[in-house]
Nucleic acid binder design. Structure first.
Ligand SMILES: [Zn+2]
Ligand SMILES: [Zn+2]
Ligand SMILES: [Zn+2]
Ligand SMILES: [Zn+2]
Lengths: 163, 163
DNA sequence: GATGATTTGCTGCATTGCAACAATTAGTTT
DNA sequence: AAACTAATTGTTGCAATGCAGCAAATCATC
């Protein structure tokens, strides 16, 4: 089990080493429990995203994971990302064509709102059942059977506005 | 002023000719009022989107607007789309890299939810102040100053599920 | 009609994303 | 252990998306 639930935005002074280590440990446990293989490549991609704490494009991940001159092909990264997303360890930010590691340890089906700071690029992750249900109800009222809501809100985070 | 507000999803039996004509008339009036120019290219792009009534990729729009062998360059379409989006006549569907004409005649700042049918590709547009405010409040609770929420919900529309 | 601003055309390119097949690796069975 | 099967990764190639930068044309205004 992980420790405290992380706040919506990672605070600038949090113990990021531990935050990353915890998330990795959780990923390992999860894959173990599901008989899924967290292979070196998948792990490297996850680590890159965890370390960055901000959304990264697939090609940024290539830069970060390619060690000693040999960088992985795009398709390699995309496949690793597919795996991580399917297992709920990574989210895709549609409005940015980017990916971010999830440090919230929630169910894959959970409804999530991403708050994306336009200035610093930080992404907060809010999980609100109320919003999810309201949204779901509005959809049903239109005869629509909802599946996976994508909710991404651009704006300015507290840290950037405070400056 | 337009006639009845269109329903969330365009019904299969609606008078689409009129629907398109109304929307075009509205676009003209709006541009006129704002001293903006609805040039032939911009008009063609808007018409293509209105006619389709479904989200189109930029390169699909190229196919549809290129008459007599001479098709416009991608950049031309993107510029027209920029204009139409800035004026609230077209929305971008982030999760699809596609664009759809707005037939709802609402303010640009209005909060909108897109319901995207995975089977037929139809897109419904719901405008709910309640959801918008809930979302906005959740963001503010996290110290976040929200700007442009992108809310896109995948699922199955009533028409497709009914079959 | 000269001037300045807007719009369009054109060339080229960066980014994103994946298909198809071969090679490798991991896990399982005889 | 050898053989077999399934999963993963490597390689090549390419399609789709999106825009920068500059030149030409068009529009508005004086
Ligand atoms: Zn951290
Ligand atoms: Zn998450
Ligand atoms: Zn219609
Ligand atoms: Zn609209």
């Amino acid at each position: 089990m992980r420790g405290m639930a992380p706040s919506v935005f990672p605070t600038p002074d949090h113990d990021h080493g531990r935050c990353t280590a915890d998330a990795l440990a959780h990923a390992e446990a999860l894959c173990e429990a599901r008989s899924q293989r967290l292979t070196p490549i998948r792990r490297q991609v996850l680590e890159a995203l965890l370390t960055s704490h901000k959304p990264l494009g697939a090609y940024e991940i290539i830069e970060l994971t390619g060690q000693e001159g040999a960088r992985p092909a795009p398709i390699t990264i995309y496949r690793a990302l597919d795996f991580l997303i399917e297992n709920g360890l990574v989210h895709r930010i549609e409005s940015r064509n980017a990916f971010i590691a999830c440090i919230h340890n929630h169910a894959i089906s959970d409804f999530v709102v991403f708050l994306i700071c336009e200035r610093c690029g930080a992404v907060g992750e809010v999980s609100s059942r109320a919003i999810g249900e309201t949204l779901s109800n509005a959809a049903k009222a239109a005869g629509f059977t909802p599946k996976a809501p994508v909710v991404e809100v651009s704006g300015i985070c507290a840290h950037c506005r405070g400056v």
